[in-house]
Nucleic acid binder design. Structure first.
Lengths: 201, 201
DNA sequence: ACGGCGCCATGACACCTGTCACGGGCAGGT
DNA sequence: ACCTGCCCGTGACAGGTGTCATGGCGCCGT
């Protein structure tokens, strides 16, 4: 019997996945949480063996939760199950110690198989996404550039960004200009969009 | 036995919802589609009585699919089940003839109830979202302003937008300026973000 | 020790944007 | 007929933005 924990901020999806997986005779859903910062405690209390983690969650990201699991409960395996197949996410997930990466538009049948493989110690990675991730390569952005771009995501003017980052306006413009060049964009809004869709933020 | 159709572009969520609803003894999932433009045909072939529609789908939007259902199969009831609780979506869903509106972070237990109520001819609307929708009021944007803002969503410069809309640059700037004023933003990127998160695009 | 790279900053310049004033054309309502 | 509101366009202006050159600081690898 494989004991699994579900982490997804959408209660409906969480409950539906539980119903789906409970149909399998060798899988048992032993815990459900809606926040990333509840994963470790719930996994420990319930004695989970595999954790299905969504990425976009309040509290902690699924990626951060995977990293926390690796240090706190190393024997528990993390399987990222997310809506967005952003190429950069795959690398960051593996770096965080995740054992698998599946997108939400894979057939429902395959989810149970992925859980079993991860439980058996194998790595499971969506093949299309793996190829895309290799094609796109790692993020060309430096840490600061990514930070600034993240602050520019909502379309704030440079002055606001500079204030939030405690930097000079000129410096912000330089970082943005560099990021625009690296992403092949012509505007900081476009650069932010590109970087975000690649999972670089 | 209530015969329902599931429309969601994420196969995993679709399958999971099917598993969840099949647990109910009085509900039967008779069709599943992953695109908006397959809803009407599949509903007719399978003899569905209630259609669960996601909004973000390839082909046709869930809102557009609901409108198509109303004209083609008036006896079939549409229940919008979406990730994003954008206030403007509620109004547009009702205008499109939808019988209900539920967000994906409602408890799983309530979904079956919502289906039963819709099947019985009642309207089901998430109460928080209904309040928010009334607070926010209808979209203040004119049709063109919304179009232009939609083209500005990806951060393209004015010249590109003008080209895509077959308009003068000056006109585009005027529409954008007006939209910025109405949304309370200071940048077109921010205005686009606000309008998008309110479901005005 | 030296060069390379990232980070922060300044200043200057061309260009893009947001705003305003103004005008014409076209519907819908009184 | 009149007014109102939306759509499209022009022109001009202040301010924001993207780019470049330049410089100083710290860190790392050889």
């Amino acid at each position: 019997m494989i004991r699994i924990l579900l982490a997804d901020d959408q209660a409906l999806v969480r409950g539906a996945l539980a119903a789906l997986l409970d149909l399998e005779t060798d899988i048992e859903v032993v815990a459900q949480v809606g926040r990333g910062d509840e994963v470790v405690a719930a996994a420990r209390d319930a004695g989970a063996e595999v954790c299905l983690l969504d990425i976009e969650m309040p509290g902690l990201t699924g990626l951060e939760a995977a990293a926390a699991l690796r240090t706190e409960l190393p024997e528990v395996r993390a399987l990222i199950v997310t809506t967005f197949g952003r190429p950069g996410y795959v690398r960051r997930a593996l770096d965080a110690g995740a054992a698998g990466f599946v997108v939400k538009d894979t057939p429902a049948k395959q989810l149970a198989d992925a859980v079993r493989r991860v439980h058996a110690g194998l790595r499971v990675i969506d093949p299309d996404l793996a190829a895309e991730s290799l094609m796109a390569g790692p993020s060309p952005l430096t840490v600061r550039e990514a930070e600034i771009l993240a602050l520019a995501l909502d379309g704030s003017p440079v002055a606001t960004i500079a204030g939030r980052a405690h930097l000079s306006e000129g410096t912000v413009r330089n970082h943005l200009s560099s990021a625009i060049g690296k992403t092949g964009a012509t505007t900081r809004a476009e650069a932010a969009r590109v970087a975000h869709s690649n999972g670089w933020l």
